[in-house]
Design a protein around this nucleic acid. Sequence first.
DNA 1: CTCGAATCATTCGAGCCGTGAATCATTATG
DNA 2: CATAATGATTCACGGCTCGAATGATTCGAG
Lengths: 157, 157
Amino acid sequence: MDEVKGGRPASAEGAGIPGTVVFKLGTLGTVAADRFAAAVEPLGVKPKHVGLMVALAHATSASQQDLAARLGVVPSLVVSLADHLERLGAVERVRDPADRRRQILTLTDEGRELLARCTATAQTLDRQFTAALTPAQLTALQQALAVLAAEAGLPTE
Amino acid sequence: MDEVKGGRPASAEGAGIPGTVVFKLGTLGTVAADRFAAAVEPLGVKPKHVGLMVALAHATSASQQDLAARLGVVPSLVVSLADHLERLGAVERVRDPADRRRQILTLTDEGRELLARCTATAQTLDRQFTAALTPAQLTALQQALAVLAAEAGLPTE
DNA sequence: CTCGAATCATTCGAGCCGTGAATCATTATG
DNA sequence: CATAATGATTCACGGCTCGAATGATTCGAG
């Protein structure tokens, strides 16, 4: 592999598409997403479900509409996600007393436990995924990803 | 909240799933992939097509079977990708004289030009995507991604 | 107070992608 | 020469996501 130490980054020359950050990030991100999906699949959920639970975890109450906006998907998709999680007993739907059109989704205890298991799984996966990086590289990577995530308008965790 | 029972809580990671590298990498990678797709879409191709052209660019001749393995997809998908690129005049199919079952795919001049335009588009996108990073951060990011890509068994380029 | 417009959740049909099995041509094997 | 193996191709299927209708509820104007 090319050791890019010391040299100038991103040159507009022979590198071509495989040399761009978007490309590497895209392909590697796909790999990461696939592995994550494979890791949580035995738990009966898919990445989108996990995303929903995460969103619920630190927003104690949220309408499905809000969640749809937060996850960047259409509200109708939230319905099926919530359906599945409700079938698992991970979330509950409660009508908002103040506005009875709204369904307030809340994590149940079971849901919190499920999320905890997903978290443990993800962290285990994370450790082996980043095992080849030096601590300094890992820190630098996280920092760079945070910057890009903020720039891309992603939920700043 | 984050009660990871059984296992010891990893060093400074109270962040949970959104704090893992796989998660950030996955979501950010999806964004990157989407933007890349949107960027090359006006050129009439999709990321997989670009991937195929890239693979062809520095392997002047390759059977579709080889390409399928290289791209990590099933051979039947290569057929449709090649069909589309052939319709655009970007690739040519030639029967291997040595083994007439094989279709040798080659980039045409038009294909090279198309790939060049895709490359330019990608690099422009890349610059604006990484604009928020300092040069040092960018270098560190590329280095870390290279390590992870190699570890993940991706085409080391 | 009432009627019409707007909002939220839900259902349902449609489209796109990628896969896996079956098919045809060609080549290797014995 | 016959039979198995390989490469390319086609095609029908399933999964995922979106968008348009539907029903319930609330808001706002008069």
